[in-house]
Design a protein around this nucleic acid. Structure first.
Length: 261
DNA sequence: ATGGTGGGTCACCCA
């Protein structure tokens, strides 16, 4: 089974890019973030016609929005509210193979890494803390956690750990928080495990660069974690960096894992 | 130090 996560930054604008990716990468389960549309406008028919007829979607107007798109049935669709808000940043469902999928869009956190000066940063930290408490109390089994977690935890997850030290997404408190979520929540970073500690990995490049590929100032903000019981079932991992160079690209690229059926 | 670009909706929000 091949499972992908992708912050698509408007599923309606990029539906053809997504469909091409599903086909060419032979994806069974696709988790999207930043779909940016209400459920009634979600392009469900296009996915169905292309061969992915099973959907768990949770969107709102203009902002956020998450979805799980699959070839085979998805069941037990649910979500939780985090940090006291009902924004559409989480959906979970069971997919083929009895695998429980949690799909998250963690708040970006604004520009200033200080919860007093910038409430968005406080929201991000609160969201992270609640995830940590939840998964510490509800230890995942036969589960996958994916999404745009908006944190690059390791020096090898950014173009310059020194220059991003005080930049939201790579501050110490966020990095430590994400590691704590992984450890206390009993999750395993299969992408980092597959490529090794020394490999520099990015899944996002800003739109605000003259030439994203030439400057290559990326960050690994998108993650795929498995519960510990599935850690040895992952046989392949790919980050589709080439899609950052697509026509009208998302600023994020898909990450794909192959997991034993 | 600053501003750079892009998406959604319709004067600004968000990333």
């Amino acid at each position: 089974m091949r499972l992908a996560t992708w912050n698509i930054n408007s599923v309606r604008l990029r539906i053809n890019l997504v469909l091409d990716f599903l086909t060419s990468a032979d994806i069974d389960v696709l988790c999207l973030q930043e779909t940016k549309t209400e459920d009634k406008h979600f392009p469900a028919e296009a996915f169905t016609e292309a061969g992915w007829p099973h959907h768990a979607i949770r969107g709102e107007k203009s902002y956020n929005g998450v979805a799980i798109i699959a070839r085979k049935p998805v069941t037990a669709i649910s979500h939780r509210d985090w940090a006291g808000r009902e924004d559409c940043r989480h959906i979970s469902a069971q997919v083929e193979g009895g695998i429980q999928v949690h799909n998250f869009y963690v708040p970006a956190g604004g520009d200033v890494p200080d919860r007093e000066a910038n409430p968005k940063f406080g929201h991000k930290l609160d969201f992270l803390s609640e995830m940590t408490s939840y998964f510490a109390a509800n230890r995942p089994e036969r589960s996958v956690l994916v999404g745009d977690l908006n944190i690059a935890p390791l020096p090898e997850d950014v173009w310059s750990t020194k220059q991003l030290k005080n930049v939201v997404s790579h501050t110490d408190i966020e990095r430590e928080g994400l590691i704590r979520l992984m450890n206390d929540g009993s999750w395993h970073d299969v992408v980092r495990a597959y490529f090794g500690a020394a490999e520099v990995l990015y899944s996002w490049w800003s739109y605000r660069a003259r030439d994203w590929a030439a400057s290559n100032r990326g960050r690994r903000l998108d993650h795929v974690w498995t519960s510990l019981d599935l850690a040895d079932s992952v046989s392949d991992v790919q980050i589709h960096s080439d899609l950052r160079g697509a026509e009208k690209p998302s600023d994020h690229v898909p990450t794909v894992i192959t997991i034993a059926d």
